[in-house]
C-alpha cells in the first residue's frame, strides 16, 4: 500500500478557546485521538496508542498531526494584523470527503442557487474569467481576480455589489478566502475553512474569520458564516461519488471550475489522495 502522504500534515482538532482538562475525543484519518489541556496549560493531543502527537495552537484552533510535520503550519500574515476581529465559528460535521468540503469552498458558480439572495442571485449567474496559478515557492494553489455579483456580500454589506475574491489552498484540507472588505477599501477580509479529516468520507469543518468590522455584533458574524456553511452541507452530502474524483471522466468541468481543476491537479501531483477517488466510475 502506498503511504498516505497527507499523514505529515497539520489538521485542526479543536477550538483553542474550548480546550479544557476534560478534553475532546475525536479522530484524525480513522485514528481515535484525544485533545485536552495539559497540566502545563498547553494543548496535549494523544493518538490511538497513547503516543503524544505534535501540537500547536494557531488561528483560534488546536492543530495536530499523526505523522512528522516537516514544515510549520502555513502562515496567514493577516491574522496578526491589528484591528481585525477574530471569529471562532465553531464546528459542523459533514458526511462527505474532506476534499469535497474544500472544493466546494473554492466554487462561486453555486452562489445563486445554494446561497440565494445572500452570496448570489439569478440572473447574475455568469462566472467571468479569473486567474489560477500554483505558487511554486509556497507550493500553494491561488485563484485571483475572481469577481461575482452578490446581493449581500457580508453581514456589514447593504445592497448588491460586485465582490472580488482571492482563494488560496495552503494545505490539502484548508482554504483561505480573501474577500473585498466594504468598510475598508483596499483591505481584504479573511475567511478560512479548516477541515479535520475524520475518515475518507467524514469530516469536521471549522470555519474561522479575521475581519475588519467593528460594527456587527460577534454573534451575527458567527451566524452569518454558519448559515452559509450549513446551506452547503446538503449539497456536500449528496454528491456522487462520495470521494473527490481526480479523474473527471464522469464529469464536465468548465472554465468556471478552473479553481476546482487546479486544486485537484495539485492534490494529484502531491499524492494527496486521502478522500479522493482515483479512477472515474
Amino acid at each position: 500500500m502506498t503511504r498516505n502522504t497527507m499523514i505529515d500534515g497539520w489538521y485542526p482538532v479543536s477550538l483553542a478557546s474550548q480546550l479544557d482538562a476534560h478534553g475532546r475525543r475525536t479522530a484524525l484519518m480513522g485514528e481515535p485521538i484525544a485533545v485536552r489541556r495539559g497540566e502545563d496549560g498547553n494543548a496535549k493531543v494523544t493518538g490511538g496508542n497513547g503516543r503524544d502527537l505534535p501540537t500547536c495552537i494557531r488561528y483560534g484552533h488546536v492543530w495536530s498531526s499523526l505523522g512528522d510535520p516537516q514544515k510549520p503550519l502555513f502562515a496567514i500574515p493577516e491574522a496578526d494584523q491589528p484591528g481585525r476581529r477574530l471569529v471562532d465559528v465553531g464546528v459542523v460535521r459533514v458526511r462527505c470527503s474532506p476534499l469535497r468540503a474544500v472544493e466546494n469552498f473554492l466554487d462561486i458558480a453555486h452562489f445563486p442557487f445554494v446561497h440565494t439572495d445572500i452570496l448570489g442571485a439569478e440572473p447574475h449567474t455568469e462566472v467571468q474569467n479569473y486567474k489560477v496559478e500554483i505558487r511554486e515557492d509556497e507550493d500553494e494553489v491561488w485563484a485571483t481576480q475572481v469577481k461575482f455579483y452578490q446581493p449581500q456580500a457580508a453581514k456589514s454589506a447593504e445592497g448588491g455589489i460586485t465582490t472580488e475574491y482571492m482563494y488560496r489552498v495552503p494545505a490539502p484540507t484548508c482554504s483561505i478566502l480573501y474577500k473585498t472588505c466594504p468598510p475598508r477599501p483596499g483591505e481584504w477580509d479573511v475567511i478560512t475553512l479548516f477541515v479535520q479529516p475524520l475518515a475518507e468520507d467524514l469530516c469536521d469543518v471549522w470555519p474561522w474569520m479575521a475581519l475588519f468590522d467593528d460594527e456587527t455584533p460577534m454573534t451575527d458574524l458567527i451566524h452569518f458564516q454558519q448559515t452559509i456553511f450549513v446551506q452547503d452541507r446538503s449539497i456536500l452530502e449528496n454528491q456522487i461519488p462520495g470521494l473527490l474524483p481526480l479523474d473527471p471522466g464522469m464529469e464536465i468541468p468548465t472554465r468556471a471550475d478552473l479553481t476546482s481543476v487546479a486544486y485537484r491537479r495539485w492534490l494529484k501531483r502531491h499524492g494527496y489522495t486521502y478522500g479522493a477517488q482515483l479512477v472515474a466510475q
Partner: peptide, 24 residues
C-alpha cells in the same frame, strides 16, 4: 448531474426542464 455529480432529485422543475440545485 453530469457536471459535478450532484443528485438531480434535489433539483427544481421550471416549465419543461429539471435543473440541478448545485449550479443550475
Amino acid at each position: 448531474c453530469p457536471h459535478r455529480g450532484m443528485r438531480l432529485s434535489h433539483g427544481f422543475v421550471r416549465g419543461e426542464t429539471l435543473a440541478c440545485i448545485y449550479h443550475g
